[in-house]
Computed example of a mutant assay.
Amino acid sequence: MRGKFITFEGADGGGKSTQVQLAADYLRQRGYEVVVSREPGGTPLAEKVRALVLDPELPLSNISQTLLYLAARSEHADKLLRPAVAAGKIVLCDRFSDSTLVYQGLALGKGAEEVNELRLLNAFAAGGLTPDLTLLLDGAPKLLARRRERRGVSDRYERQGLDYQHKLRQGFLALAQAEPERIKIINAEGDLQAVAGAVQRALDALLDGAE
């Protein structure tokens, strides 16, 4: 039986990494075999790419960033994601192709033609792998910024300021509006357990419907 590929998206500060781990624990309690990964990353090569693209001291053009992300995605999908789904496992991934569409496209004001080019490149890099469900952890940029400050987060995206964070949020919400069946918006402003409960309900709706 084919497994499920579930991605977690949204701007930093929404609690994606924590919610991925809580979701994995919940699904394992339900008896599922779960694989947890992240982008960029998930394989030794892709983790090296991650260090490059997130280094705030390393100047990279948007095209260079995009191609590096896509190279990491190709490796990740080929070596880990597609085999795990084919083996019947539930794969939870912190970010995937929607992040590329937003960070390298919509948040930079790219037009429909350029965003569609990104979609084609994403499909090529992922070998046709698409999420069965995407959970968008959404919250007010000021609130998420305060959370990042408490964690001491500083990368090339963090340094672009609050206006850029608003553009990121708008980009993710635009994708959710365009694909409401796949992308479910989770209010990330609540406490940890409230957000986890919303995530679990979305997972149940997908998995119970597939059984």
Rank of each mutant, 00 (worst) to 15 (best):
A178V: 09
G111W: 09
S61D: 13
V102Q: 00
P83H: 03
A107G: 11
A126K: 05
R150M: 10
Y69A: 04
E181D: 14
G171W: 00
A84L: 02
E113W: 07
G128P: 06
Q165M: 12
K79Y: 02
R156N: 03
G128A: 04
N122S: 12
R159A: 15
A123D: 13
Y69F: 15
A176K: 03
Y157T: 08
E179K: 14
V85Q: 00
T134P: 03
G152K: 05
A196E: 08
R73A: 10
D94E: 12
V153R: 11
Q165V: 01
T100P: 04
A194K: 11
L143F: 09
V102R: 00
V102L: 01
A86M: 12
E179D: 14
P131K: 11
I90C: 10
N122M: 04
A107S: 15
D163A: 15
R150L: 13
S99N: 01
A71C: 13
T100W: 00
R156H: 02
V85D: 01
Y157G: 00
R182L: 07
N122V: 05
L133W: 08
L121P: 11
A178Q: 15
K110M: 15
G161N: 12
I185C: 08
E114G: 10
G127Q: 10
A125E: 10
D155Y: 08
L81W: 05
D98R: 01
K110G: 02
V102E: 00
L108I: 06
V85E: 02
V195A: 04
S74F: 06
F96Y: 14
Q193R: 14
S64A: 15
E149T: 12
R151N: 08
F124E: 04
L70S: 13
R119D: 04
A178P: 10
L108D: 05
L92V: 07
A178G: 10
R148A: 13
I90M: 08
K110F: 13
N62M: 06
A196D: 03
N116Y: 05
G139K: 07
R119K: 15
R73C: 10
E158R: 12
K167R: 15
D191R: 12
Q104D: 08
R148D: 02
A140T: 11
A188L: 06
K79D: 05
L133K: 08
N187G: 07
I186F: 06
K79P: 01
K89L: 07
V91Q: 03
E113I: 09
A188P: 04
A87T: 01
F172C: 00
E189V: 02
S61A: 05
A126M: 06
